[in-house]
Write a protein that binds this DNA or RNA. Structure first.
Lengths: 208, 208
DNA sequence: GTCTATAAGAAGATAGAC
DNA sequence: GTCTATCTTCTTATAGAC
């Protein structure tokens, strides 16, 4: 990895741990293994490093989206796989999604940075809500909607059903960002959540 | 309100907007209407102001807990009220809980500050998880458990049922902290969520 | 308890040699 | 592209008068 990219990587690590204002250009330079003034040959100033991270994330977005949405970014195609899933297979998919969110290092550091900086300006707030609320609900909603259409699950309100599926995952995810030592517990809860979700919305039951 | 208290109040407002490191003692003094050096007659240093906010929150906790747990901190007594609730009454309770979290200014500013500072050290991370994950799940779990015992709702796993009730509220809450302009939308989703939750776990349906 | 003046140090950024 | 030396500004905190 070239120096310009390594600066972004080390800066993201530090920003995600301490927040933008608590990280000094000297800290970043030290991690990269150069002196602070050398940073200015690659980026105009500290703010430009932060902006480059945000921009790079937007560039990576197309790739990330595929993994974010359980299988791919073609919900209709995904649903064809999904509708034939047993409960065990559904749990595996949930685990894979959760693992990706939690252990993909770039995704995790970026989310933590955004968590810290979300109140700094409206653009960052909107980015957070899009990436971790609206987009997951949109894509998983399309997916679950297909499963409902094909009779795998049953509900009168797919949006709320999707909220019931995703909100516990979101809550466990943000908890693990703070308390990684509770990951094993989170996985157990996640499994119980998906099992109960499945039974609650099973087509074998009366419609809600 | 005396100066010592006003310092805490203005500091909390600023910390919740910008984070600890982005707030300068001069900013706090300006808001209070005094000069920066005068702050040091009330608090040893900037850190002491932050610590005093955390400590004050712990002191207010007994009072807050009553409102946090829907009605009071006696789940058995609350459940006696709760089990006789219609769906409309349950929605009103959910709205009151949500309104409290969102519009109680002190509670909201403190939560935002903790959101920003949660990765700074383990103590703050644990405080966040206790206040906004473990405690709500504990108290609402006791409450819902009583409703299940008395036949108002039905489930095999009260903990997951409680997660299904609370996680969407938590997600909407943190979204409104970031995007207050979306509060009306959040209230509509909240209402739909509680209606669907009620139907899913109604005792009239097959047990899950 | 509040002020003005100021010390002490930290942090961002630039100049110019190599 | 990286370095050393240095500038400037910002920020915390203290001294001492009122």
């Amino acid at each position: 990895m070239d120096t310009k990219q390594r600066i972004l990587d080390e800066a993201l690590t530090l920003f995600s741990q301490k927040g933008y204002a608590n990280v000094y250009v000297n800290d970043i330079a030290e991690k990269v293994g150069i002196k602070a003034p050398s940073l200015y040959k690659h980026y105009k100033n500290k703010k430009a490093i932060f902006d480059a991270i945000i921009e790079e994330m937007n560039n990576r977005f197309a790739i990330q989206a595929k993994n974010l949405n359980i299988i791919g970014n073609d919900p209709a195609a995904d649903a064809r796989i999904y509708e034939s899933l047993s409960e065990e297979e559904m749990i595996k998919l949930g685990f894979d999604l959760f693992e990706y969110y939690i252990h993909d290092d770039y995704v995790k550091r970026f989310r933590k940075m955004l968590t810290i900086e979300q109140f700094h300006n409206k653009e960052l707030a909107d980015t957070y809500t899009k990436l971790y609320v609206d987009d997951p609900l949109l894509y998983q909603g399309l997916l679950l909607g297909q499963v409902v259409s094909s009779g795998g699950l049953s509900t009168e309100n797919v949006d709320i059903m999707t909220l019931h599926f995703f909100a516990p995952i979101y809550m466990l995810l943000t908890m693990c960002d703070r308390n990684p030592e509770r990951e094993p517990e989170a996985f157990k809860i996640l499994e119980s959540h998906i099992r109960q979700f499945n039974k609650l919305y099973s087509r074998k039951r009366k419609e809600v």
